[in-house]
Design a protein around this nucleic acid. Structure first.
Lengths: 187, 187, 187, 187
DNA sequence: GATGAATGAGCCTTCATTCAT
DNA sequence: AATGAATGAAGGCTCATTCAT
């Protein structure tokens, strides 16, 4: 990730990467079986961290407080581990690459669906399924859109602002359109 | 763009590109001065088309109908010229590359600001400046987020759904929070 | 020669040369039939100037004043037309190239012999033939050696010093070893 | 050097050179860091051999026998390692190239100065400093001039004749003009 | 006579990968 | 498990030269 951060995936040679890691280039092939697989392994780590960030936050939130749970999901997506410059650039390289690499594509797809699934689950507590699907898509798009726009700026992602914009949307969405209480009745 | 679509920017060699264009590899360097500059020139064309898509649509909308104008801007961003697979993949490669190439970065920055500027201008007709800034950011993020999520799917971008999600947000935003009429009074 | 002066023969492309000349690259091939032939034509011009420099000076010197005639030959070899940086670098490129190009080699050979011939002719007026041959070789070597050493310095050739060193040698040679008068008796 | 000998520096491609060496082209860049640096490394070797040739000969000559020491220096400059065709052509290519390559130029400059320095040191034992400087320059020019003229002939350098011409000059110079003994008095 | 557009061949260099140690 | 040396394949780019105009 440090190599990608500095020169981009394309110019991050195995020699450079192994140099930063303090090992020989050969060992990378030995362990990972090629540069492509190294990127895949790297992303598995990052995706695991993302998953952990979200589940960890959800643990500490009451299951019936939908807004808080949605906020927790959003917050997890903007965890420090995901907004560092080196991670952000690796993500973008991963996305670009996933369009031409089956293994990476599957990884990306799983992650994409997981976010939607988390969001839908919560939203369905307080609104009709069809609407929940739509709002989930919108929230997911907001997360990715803000994340992407932040990634493309040298200042990086403004995490507090990101959370504010998305959480504002969530609150308004539930206030304006739900004739239900914002806090779901416990199942 | 066809070459990027098929194998990605990295593996799209000058020979492959020139082959698709039916010319010699040398002429590409002669005219564009290298592969990097070719990508830049390509993106200039795409960005011009995006700009044209938006301005063309705005021309046919009453200046006082803010919602319609915002919808036109959104629609322009999902124009056919921007949602083709080959264009979408080129965009993503461009973004990734712009993080390590000054010339590309400037291009990307200009485009980013232009969208925000268009959105803010319209929103300020019907809401306080500070709020307009925020809503503009949210709409921009939605456009990019939905665009990105669509880009990463093999089915491509679902344009009608994209417009619906974003326009819903716009309508709700103006209905819920503006004590002004949705159609601005003519100046 | 300007192109060679700036970047060396190798990197002096036909485009660069034609640019400096204010013509199209194609015309160079049309007129000279290739880059190699252009170098040959250039050297023919330079060699003609060298020849003219010497003969012109000899015209103004009494045929019986051997020392003065030798000095004139030396002086001709350090004429302004031969000691400019652009000419000097072209000469050196020519020499290097002449080892692998038959046409250039012939040109170089003719010039080499001409100098020796001039020198021998004069020296034989005042010393035995065998000795004249040797001294001629030494003078020729001095001319080329000083010229070369000057060529390799950024300050260029110090012409007055060059002439002094060589003419000193000539004078001493004729003073020390010739029991003949320094001025030959008219034939 | 074999490649330069056969086709000249320009046409001596890395592939040809590596072919002659029985290795892959890539290893040349790996070890030397490019074709330019390979030439530099080659010349360092040649210059070291030249330096060794001279110092080795000087070791076996009495410090007080100035003529013999000068002859030794001359002889060292016409050592077998310096007069082979492949070395001679490499030298000439090196000179030509040194005019447009900073690293090569420094190398060339050091070598040039070293010869003058050696010569001056000996000459100052038997003549005034100012005169020693001049004679040193003349001897150096003779060495280079004869070397160059020999280089340009297909027969190559006639080493015995070269030494004779230069040593004759040295002897005459010391006989004619020095009111000192040819053999310096021991310090 | 002169040119601009275009090309094909070739070169230097990079780099992921292999293999003997 | 780890490495240093080495390689083969490929890529971007340059350039002398050609050709229709």
């Amino acid at each position: 990730m440090d190599a990608i951060n500095e020169v981009g995936l394309h110019k991050a040679s195995v020699v450079m990467i192994s140099g930063k890691a303090g090992v020989s280039p050969a060992i990378i092939n030995h362990h990972f079986g090629g540069k492509d697989n190294l990127l895949e392994a790297t992303m598995r780590t990052v995706l695991k961290q993302l998953s952990d960030s979200v589940t960890e936050r959800l643990k500490h939130v009451d299951r019936s407080d939908v807004v808080a749970r949605l906020n927790a999901i959003v917050s997890g997506n903007f965890d420090d581990t995901q907004t560092e410059s080196r991670v952000v650039k690796t993500w973008l390289a991963f996305w670009t690459q996933s369009m031409h690499d089956e293994a990476l594509y599957r990884l990306q797809r799983v992650n994409e669906q997981r976010l939607l699934s988390y969001l839908r689950y919560e939203l369905k507590q307080v609104m009709p399924k069809q609407q929940a699907v739509q709002v989930a898509k919108t929230i997911a798009a907001l997360i990715d859109g803000i994340w992407l726009r932040g990634a493309l700026k040298p200042e990086g992602i403004d995490v507090p602002e990101a959370k504010k914009l998305i959480n504002d949307y969530i609150r308004e969405q539930l206030e304006c359109h739900c004739n239900v209480q914002l806090t779901a009745v416990p199942a």
